[in-house]
């Protein structure tokens, strides 16, 4: 630490902020004495004071609107992919519990398709209402209402897919067709069980889960049909 009467160039450089803020460990007279005899330090003090003052006036900079648009698309795409993965997880869990009715390979193919497509179209997708899946103790009437709601949604989506002006490429079409066939097959089996035991809560949940998966797959199919890819007709 310097004594109270001697200030050097090195002292000033080391404690410039303190000098400018009036917190220097030297007296004002000692600092002034040094500055009076040192043009270099005098210029430095003036310049740094000006630079600090100017720096404090710099304001926020609004980003171009395109940044928000691009970022929103990324976030929306990620959210859609997560939702798709969640739906497929539910479907896979349900299919696994049914003893291999739904093939894992088909699920993986659908996931890849949905993820790649949804990242691209994510920002343009609207959220179609999907009825919630309830507990195993659901009353028969509540189950019937939910099943009817799913069935209506499936009918509307199949109609929208059939009316689409453009189709998908053959590979995508075949993969989606196979996945829908798998789900339909599983739905058929559960319906057979429910025909024998209409109030079985496990079967009710299984059927609603499968119907929900078909709704989700058809939603994404319709979204894909709105994409630019493919030239062949898709007939659900």
């Amino acid at each position: 630490m310097a004594d109270q009467t001697t200030v050097t160039c090195a002292h000033l450089a080391d404690a410039l902020d303190d000098v400018l803020d009036g917190r220097a460990p030297w007296s004002a007279a000692a600092i002034d004495t040094h500055l009076a005899g040192c043009p270099s330090c005098r210029a430095m003090v003036v310049d740094v004071r000006a630079i600090r003052a100017a720096a404090q006036t710099l304001e926020p900079i609004e980003p171009p609107p395109a940044v928000w648009a691009a970022m929103r698309a990324r976030v929306s795409g990620e959210r859609e992919v997560r939702a798709a993965a969640s739906r497929l997880d539910r479907l896979a869990a349900w299919a696994g519990s049914r003893g291999g009715l739904f093939q894992p390979a088909a699920a993986a193919a659908v996931l890849v398709l949905m993820a790649s497509a949804l990242i691209w179209v994510g920002s343009r997708l609207g959220e179609a209402p999907v009825p919630p899946v309830g507990s195993a103790g659901r009353a028969v009437t509540e189950f019937a209402l939910a099943e009817a709601e799913y069935s209506d949604a499936i009918a509307s989506l199949e109609e929208a897919a059939a009316d689409a002006p453009r189709g998908l490429d053959a590979a995508t079409n075949a993969a989606l067709r196979a996945s829908i066939d798998d789900i339909d097959s599983a739905i058929g089996e559960v319906r057979e069980v429910l025909a024998r035991e209409p109030g079985d809560p496990w079967s009710q949940d299984s059927l609603l889960g499968a119907l929900g998966s078909k709704v989700a797959l058809l939603q994404d199919t319709v979204a894909l049909l709105g994409d630019d890819g493919g030239a062949e007709d898709f007939n659900p």
Binding site: P39, D47, A50, A53, A54, A55
Partner: peptide, 20 residues
């Protein structure tokens, strides 16, 4: 990097655009 001792001092008000 440090200016020579005889270099003129910066103006008291530096334009923001120059500082940016």
């Amino acid at each position: 990097a440090e200016p020579a001792a005889a270099a003129p001092a910066l103006p008291q008000a530096i334009a923001r655009i120059d500082l940016e």
